[in-house]
Amino acid sequence: MPETQTLTSTCLADQLERGFRGGAWHGPAVMELLTGVDGPLAQWRPYPTSHSMAELAGHLAYWLRDAERQIVGAPHLQGGPGSDWGPAVMDSEAAWQAVCAALEEAHGRLRTAVLQVEESRFDEARSGSDTTIRGLLMGTLQHNAYHAGQIALLRKLAEAAGGRPS
């Protein structure tokens, strides 16, 4: 039996939590990296066309909501191409805090959905896709780790540069 078939809802939810909040094998988790980041630091970018930590946080929230949507069978998320990146500039600290709150909420909802999935559904094909729910969740874990690495690099660069938006 392939190793992926032994991943239960509890194990997958635990891995989502580790990659999001802490205890991940790959290094700092998403929220560990965003702790202490304020609005100006979150908007910093090394050059005009790169993403900021704020954009990455919004992007992660979007795809966590989408994964939850697919698990519970909810309608597609609204928005056109590129809507998963959100606004490039936020106008206040409150706007940054709202992005962080949306990220926390999206993670919590996905984790809850994963814990409620019957084990037999994990190998179900997703509508319009050739991957399973288990594959969706494994991809979500990889996506979170990838962007956590980007956030880690951006934060180091931003702090070294004084954290002023460019």
Rank of each mutant, 00 (worst) to 15 (best):
I151P: 02
A101P: 04
G19L: 10
G80C: 08
G22S: 08
S92L: 11
E93A: 15
R155W: 04
R69S: 07
G23P: 12
W63V: 11
Y62I: 06
A145S: 12
L64I: 00
A113D: 03
A160L: 12
E118W: 00
L103S: 04
F122D: 00
A113S: 08
M53S: 04
E17C: 10
L16R: 07
S52D: 08
A102L: 06
I71S: 02
I151A: 03
L7V: 02
R69P: 05
A145G: 09
L7T: 03
H26E: 15
M90I: 15
T35W: 06
H26R: 09
L110M: 09
A88H: 10
G73Y: 08
W96L: 12
G22W: 05
L34R: 01
Q78H: 06
S9V: 01
I133N: 00
L153C: 14
N144S: 14
R18F: 13
A98G: 15
P75D: 11
I151K: 02
V72N: 11
V37D: 05
V72L: 10
G139Y: 01
Q116L: 08
T4H: 09
D130R: 12
P75R: 03
Q97D: 13
G108C: 06
P87R: 12
G22T: 11
G162Y: 10
T6E: 02
T4F: 04
H107P: 05
Q150R: 07
G163K: 07
E104K: 05
G82D: 10
I151H: 03
R134S: 08
R155V: 07
R134Q: 07
G86T: 09
L41G: 05
M138C: 10
E118H: 06
G19F: 06
T10D: 15
D123P: 00
G23W: 08
P46H: 06
G58W: 11
D84R: 05
E105K: 13
T35S: 15
A94E: 15
S50T: 01
G149M: 09
A106K: 01
T49L: 09
P81W: 14
L41F: 01
D123S: 13
A161D: 13
L64M: 13
L137E: 01
L77E: 01
I133W: 00
Q43S: 13
V30I: 15
L16K: 05
L141D: 00
G82P: 10
E32V: 11
L154G: 06
S166D: 13
S52P: 07
T4P: 00
A145L: 06
L34H: 04
P46Q: 07
G86E: 04
H147S: 05
R109D: 10
G39C: 12
A67E: 06
G73S: 06
L154W: 03
Y47C: 14
L56A: 03
L64C: 03
Q116M: 05
T132W: 04
Q15K: 11
T4G: 00
A158Q: 02
L12P: 00
I151G: 05
Y146L: 12
T10G: 11
L60Q: 02
E105N: 11
V30H: 03
S127P: 07
Q43P: 08
A94W: 03
T112Y: 01
L33H: 01
T10R: 15
C100D: 00
H26W: 09
R111M: 02
A95E: 14
A67T: 09
A57E: 03
R111D: 04
P40G: 10
P48L: 13
M1L: 08
T8H: 03
M31D: 08
